[in-house]
Simulated scan of single mutants.
Amino acid sequence: MKLGIMDVPNERSSHERPVLRGLGLAVLIAMAAGGILAALVYPLLGYPYVSTNTITVVAGSIAAGLLGLAEDLRGLSVRVRSLCLLLIASGVAASLLWQPQLFGGSSGLVSPVFLQWVSGWLETDLPLWGLLLLAVYAVLFISSYINVANFMDGLNGISGFHGVIAGLTFAVVGYLTGHGWLLVVGLVLAAGFGGFLPWNLTKPGAFLGDVGSYLLGGSVAVTSFAALVAGIPFLATIGPMVIYFGDVGATLVKRVRAGKRWDEPHKEHVYQRIQQLGYTHVQASAITAGCTAVASLLGIGSLFTGLWGTLALLVAGLAVVVCYSLLPRVLPARTQP
Results as ranks from 00 to 15, higher is better:
Gly4Ala: 12
Ile5Cys: 09
Met6Ala: 09
Met6Ser: 10
Met6Pro: 01
Asp7Lys: 06
Pro9Cys: 11
Glu11Cys: 10
Ser13Gly: 01
Ser14Cys: 11
Ser14Arg: 02
Pro18Cys: 13
Leu20Val: 13
Gly22Ile: 03
Gly24Ser: 08
Gly24Asp: 02
Ala26Asp: 05
Leu28Gly: 11
Leu28Asn: 02
Leu28Ser: 07
Ala32Trp: 01
Ala32Glu: 03
Ala33Tyr: 03
Ala38Met: 02
Ala39Trp: 12
Tyr42Met: 03
Tyr42Gly: 08
Tyr47Asn: 02
Asn53Trp: 14
Asn53Ile: 05
Ile55Arg: 05
Val58Arg: 08
Gly60His: 10
Ala64Ser: 14
Leu67Ala: 15
Gly68Thr: 11
Leu69His: 14
Leu69Cys: 07
Glu71Met: 13
Arg74Ser: 15
Gly75Cys: 13
Leu87Thr: 12
Ala89Tyr: 06
Ala89Met: 08
Val92Glu: 02
Leu97Gln: 05
Gln101Trp: 12
Phe103Gly: 06
Gly105Cys: 04
Ser106Asp: 10
Ser107Gln: 12
Leu109Tyr: 07
Val110Tyr: 14
Ser119Arg: 14
Gly120Lys: 11
Glu123Trp: 14
Asp125Phe: 11
Leu128His: 09
Leu131Ala: 15
Leu131Phe: 15
Tyr137Asn: 07
Val139Gly: 07
Val139His: 11
Ile142Asp: 02
Val148Met: 15
Asp153Ser: 09
Asp153Ile: 01
Leu155Arg: 07
Ser159Val: 04
Leu168Val: 02
Leu168Thr: 00
Leu168Trp: 03
Thr169Cys: 15
Phe170Gly: 00
Phe170Gln: 04
Phe170Ser: 00
Ala171Arg: 11
Gly174Asn: 04
Tyr175Glu: 11
Leu176Glu: 15
Thr177Leu: 12
His179Gln: 06
Leu183Gln: 06
Val184Trp: 07
Val185Asp: 08
Pro198Cys: 09
Pro198Val: 03
Asn200Cys: 00
Leu201Glu: 01
Leu208Ala: 15
Leu208Thr: 10
Val211Gly: 02
Ser213His: 05
Gly218Asn: 12
Val220Gln: 12
Val222Ser: 12
Val229Gly: 14
Gly231Pro: 05
Pro233Ile: 10
Pro233Glu: 04
Phe234Trp: 08
Ala236Leu: 00
Thr237Gly: 13
Met241Cys: 00
Tyr244Trp: 11
Gly246Tyr: 12
Val248Met: 15
Val253Ser: 11
Val253Glu: 09
Ala258Pro: 00
Gly259Pro: 02
Trp262Leu: 03
Glu268Gln: 04
His269Ser: 07
Val270Leu: 09
Gln272Thr: 00
Gln276Ile: 03
Gln276Thr: 03
Tyr279Trp: 04
Tyr279Gln: 00
Gln283Ser: 14
Ala284Val: 03
Ser285Asp: 03
Ser285Ile: 03
Ile287Leu: 15
Ala289Ser: 07
Cys291Met: 15
Thr292Asp: 04
Val294Ile: 15
Ser296Phe: 10
Ser296Met: 01
Leu297Asp: 08
Gly301Trp: 09
Phe304Ile: 01
Trp308Tyr: 06
Leu313Thr: 06
Gly317Glu: 05
Leu318Ser: 10
Leu318Asn: 06
Val321Gln: 08
Val321Ala: 10
Val322Gly: 06
Cys323Lys: 03
Tyr324Thr: 00
Ser325Phe: 11
Arg329Val: 01
Leu331Asn: 00
Arg334Pro: 01
Thr335Gln: 14
Gln336Glu: 13
